[in-house]
Design a protein around this nucleic acid. Sequence first.
DNA 1: AATGTCGACAACCGCGATTAG
DNA 2: ACTAATCGCGGTTGTCGACAT
Length: 333
Amino acid sequence: MGRAPCCDKDNVKRGPWSPEEDAKLKEFIEKNGTGGNWIALPQKAGLKRCGKSCRLRWLNYLRPNIRHGEFSEEEDRIICSFYASIGSRWSIIAAQLPGRTDNDIKNYWNTKLKKKLMAMAAPSNQRRPPPPFQTPLQTIPSLSCPAQLYRECTSYYTYTPTKSDLTGLEPTRSIPPNLWNNNNNSSLETNYSFVQAQESLVYDPMNYYPVKESHNLLMFGGTEPSCSSSDGSCSQISYGKEIKQEEIGGLQIYLSNGFEENQKFMLDCGSNNGVGDLSWTDQKPNDQYFGNTQSGYGLEEVKQLISSSNGCNYSSFFFNGENKTQERAMYYY
DNA sequence: AATGTCGACAACCGCGATTAG
DNA sequence: ACTAATCGCGGTTGTCGACAT
């Protein structure tokens, strides 16, 4: 035996809401709440509308603290960063922007932001060449662009740091001397991470050269680092014992010790300092990152997502199960 | 002035997931 | 355990106003 039937679709009003209907719905919900049952609500509120329609009207337009109108640069950055990472999961993106609805963001993306970013993506022969690495510190203007643009950026210019580039940065583990050539301009063989408190090097995909930013982790390729900070700012880096490594879609995947085959992961798409970072974390649902979603991805699903993802601006993904509640699987550009 | 085109945004539709019975 | 209603999401459509022809 299921629930009571939904609305009678032949006898409900459709189309734009009148001010009178808005007032009725608003007044009813403010007085009585939704009662946890949208389908029964319109009848109680005296509205000839489908419950679904009422829900949508309330969530997208009538509920308190809704913000309409111009999106800020910061909001643009957040939207693009998340879109590049997780695609059109508007509800997740909306959760990062208080007062904005998924519908609003979706419309904004489809009508304005996408075009704006496309316009910013100049043909490759018009891009500026990368300046020397030691240029003065750059601020990152607006990092985010659709995934395909990231890919373009990546293929257009990749950079391997030289020893002199890394002056002042401390490797997270000692670099065997034979990995450097004898002069300062030689490049470092990959797979080492560098950290320095409150500073690191990140890649600016809009300007096509690396910049320094207040970011705590630098990785080039890299091996199995993990960090214990919940916000992704890694003041302490630890290395788990790597148990697995494989390549998917050109990305290196590392599984650290403690990882369990049946472990679920969720995508955590932070935007630290305007730089989209992406990580898979084993943090539980209902926490500050994920709201009340109950879903998670198994490893195989994650791999599939990575391989089919447009947001492959990341060089590696890490999975770490050492600490089920805190440890984050991290990757940086 | 009439008509066509386009952009913006509100609303609807359909589907998968969830959950009450 | 199963069924069917409900929820929530993302894609799509409809409507309206501004502007161009």
